[in-house]
């Protein structure tokens, strides 16, 4: 059996001392996989991604990327190791142009000007609408285009692992479908591994390969997507909510 790309073991993390949001979370993400994390509000799903990316330091447990410990590293160092994070909020710089946003996304490869130029060109090939609007301010993009730019920006550095937090929240159903297509495109084009947190369970299940259900900061159930039919998911969420 091959070692996972990302291994999380018994992680405990808190925003305030003494109030752990993650309470012994463990999870493996295989190389090239598409793992979906679901669970009720307050389960710790977004906190899990923030902890992996270094925005929140765990006080117990281990996180390894390709066997290398990354728990507690600051975000810029985690990024350099090939991890990208797409937060829940629109992650663009509204007063910068689309092209400037992409250049910021390529910060870690800025000294390799040829590679950066090539990557931006490749992203424009994948998302022609961004090429058309390259000189426009990101703040003038529509909601869907903004999401596209958020994902595209994280694709510039060809990350090995993309952490994606509720990318469809607040979007119309047709735009939500576009976002999942975006993630699949990114996965194939780079190629990359995806750890996705999503409340839009029924749509996300169609794209994922494996599912982890979280409750109260730890794993309640995990397995291949085939084991997570809508009925089972509903039953599990009811169990979580009713205790």
């Amino acid at each position: 059996m091959t070692a996972p790309l990302l291994a999380i073991e018994d992680i405990h993390a808190a925003y305030q001392s003494g109030v752990d949001i993650l309470q012994g979370m463990s999870l493996d993400v295989p190389l090239g996989g598409f793992v979906l994390v679901i669970g009720p509000n307050g389960a710790g799903k977004s906190t899990l991604l923030k902890t992996v990316f270094g925005l929140l330091g765990p006080h117990r447990g281990a996180i390894t990327l390709d066997g290398k410990p990354i728990a507690g590293l600051p975000p810029h160092e985690v990024k350099r190791l090939g991890v990208s994070y797409v937060p829940q909020e629109l992650n663009t710089f509204p007063h910068l142009t689309v092209e400037e946003n992409l250049r910021v996304g390529g910060w870690t490869i800025r000294k390799d000007a040829a590679r950066l130029k090539r990557r931006i060109a490749q992203v424009y090939e994948i998302f022609p609408v961004l090429a058309e609007r390259r000189r426009d301010k990101a703040g003038s993009l529509s909601g869907g285009q903004g999401r596209m730019l958020s994902v595209a920006r994280e694709m510039i550095t060809e990350p090995r692992l993309m952490l994606v937090d509720e990318p469809t929240v607040g979007l119309a159903p047709n735009l939500a479908d576009q976002v999942y297509e975006l993630l699949q495109t990114a996965r194939k084009a780079i190629p990359t591994t995806i750890l996705l947190v999503d409340q839009n369970v029924s749509d996300a299940l169609r794209h994922a390969e494996a599912v982890v259900m979280m409750n109260l900061g730890k794993v309640k159930a995990a397995g291949p997507v085939a084991e997570f039919g809508e009925d089972r998911v509903r039953d599990l969420i009811q169990e979580c909510l009713l205790g």
Partner: peptide, 19 residues
């Protein structure tokens, strides 16, 4: 560019790998 970006989103620049 990094300074201008930071003035708009501190989380955004961290996701870009900027210290």
């Amino acid at each position: 560019l990094a300074l201008r970006a930071t003035s708009q989103s501190r989380v955004g620049v961290q996701t870009a790998g900027i210290d």
